[in-house]
Computed example of a mutant assay.
Amino acid sequence: MMMVMMVKMMMVVLLDFTNYVSTLPAPSSVSMKSVDMKHELKWSPLQAACSTAVLYSVQFQGEFELMVLNGRWVDAPECQLIPHTHCDLTFDLGSDSDYNLHVRAQCGSQRSPWTELSPPFNRRDTVLMAPEMTVTAVGDALHVTFAKLPLTAVVRVTVWKRGDELQATVYPMPAEQEVLLVPALQEGAEYCVRARTVLDTRIHSSSTDTECVSIAGRPDAAWKRTTAVTVTVVVMAALLFAVFWAAVHCRPHGCQTYLHKEPLPRSLEPDWDIQIPMSPEEAELCEPIHVSSAPSH
């Protein structure tokens, strides 16, 4: 009899405890805000009397948890017993699968039921904003700089010479690079740039405003050209002066000393002692003839 009474009392206490614990309402208005691959779960503050601060905890369940961990829910490490009504899940939702998410409140020893996000969230549903772009000309190149790019995204940068947009060149740049260098551009020309962020063929942001800058050339290019022209003129003037001075002041004997003529090799010397063989008859006909001039009167 005594044992039965004790069991009934324990049941009443447990029932009262269960009713006490379940009196805390669940969080409401659970939603996901995802911009540029930054995922933040939000909910409304708990409208219930609590003698201490209300704390919240968040769990997630993705494809890996469903298939490999047999449907297990995983605690979001940075969102356990937090006083805020928002939770950054950017680094927790690391795949393109659908994620189930839920949140609950706790007040002292009381815990509310879980409130689940509906529908599940997929990071492909993020909203991409036009990237923050800065364009500067450095020498004959363009430096295109970006800030706060989404994770895993690619930035497509379009560059063209003003007035020739049909010949534009598109440069894909991974988000972690942050700076794009476009070298060897035409000096004195003006180039225009615009960009947009792309996650895949279906997800892309709007384009930035077009920014145009002029290419002034390398900072030292003008100095180098001026120096080269000056050196060339000085060298040519010195050579002309040397030739003119030599032509005026060089005496024959002195010039022979500096302008020594090398003898030709024997193989190139002309042989003027040419003898033509003749027969005896031709030799008799070729007797020398002496011509004497008549005495003048």
Score class of each variant (00 low, 15 high):
residue 256 Q to V: 00
residue 243 V to M: 09
residue 154 V to N: 10
residue 253 H to S: 13
residue 258 Y to T: 11
residue 235 V to E: 07
residue 227 T to N: 06
residue 160 W to V: 01
residue 248 V to I: 14
residue 225 R to K: 13
residue 211 E to I: 15
residue 271 D to W: 05
residue 172 P to R: 04
residue 209 D to V: 08
residue 181 L to I: 15
residue 216 A to V: 04
residue 224 K to T: 04
residue 191 Y to W: 10
residue 224 K to A: 07
residue 231 V to E: 01
residue 166 L to C: 00
residue 259 L to R: 09
residue 277 P to A: 15
residue 251 R to Q: 13
residue 236 M to T: 11
residue 269 E to V: 14
residue 184 A to Y: 07
residue 202 R to F: 13
residue 159 V to I: 14
residue 249 H to N: 14
residue 209 D to F: 08
residue 210 T to E: 15
residue 203 I to G: 01
residue 210 T to R: 09
residue 253 H to Y: 03
residue 258 Y to C: 04
residue 208 T to V: 05
residue 272 W to Q: 08
residue 271 D to N: 13
residue 269 E to L: 15
residue 270 P to H: 06
residue 201 T to I: 05
residue 261 K to Q: 14
residue 240 L to K: 01
residue 172 P to E: 02
residue 271 D to C: 07
residue 196 R to P: 00
residue 161 K to C: 01
residue 280 P to E: 14
residue 156 R to F: 12
residue 228 A to R: 12
residue 233 V to K: 09
residue 164 D to P: 00
residue 169 T to L: 13
residue 229 V to I: 12
residue 162 R to K: 15
residue 195 A to G: 07
residue 154 V to Y: 04
residue 208 T to C: 03
residue 281 E to Q: 10
residue 233 V to Q: 08
residue 248 V to K: 15
residue 267 S to T: 12
residue 275 Q to F: 12
residue 233 V to N: 07
residue 215 I to P: 02
residue 172 P to H: 04
residue 218 R to Y: 04
residue 235 V to I: 15
residue 209 D to A: 10
residue 274 I to R: 11
residue 236 M to F: 13
residue 277 P to D: 13
residue 215 I to R: 01
residue 248 V to D: 05
residue 283 A to M: 13
residue 247 A to H: 09
residue 180 L to P: 01
residue 213 V to N: 04
residue 173 M to N: 06
residue 247 A to F: 11
residue 270 P to F: 05
residue 236 M to V: 14
residue 280 P to T: 10
residue 220 D to Q: 10
residue 183 P to T: 02
residue 281 E to G: 02
residue 255 C to G: 07
residue 200 D to Y: 07
residue 187 E to Y: 00
residue 267 S to D: 12
residue 181 L to A: 10
residue 254 G to T: 10
residue 189 A to K: 08
residue 248 V to S: 06
residue 202 R to P: 00
residue 220 D to V: 09
residue 251 R to K: 15
residue 235 V to H: 02
residue 168 A to D: 02
residue 206 S to N: 12
residue 178 E to Q: 13
residue 254 G to P: 00
residue 277 P to F: 04
residue 274 I to F: 08
residue 184 A to Q: 11
residue 159 V to Y: 09
residue 281 E to F: 12
residue 178 E to M: 13
residue 189 A to W: 00
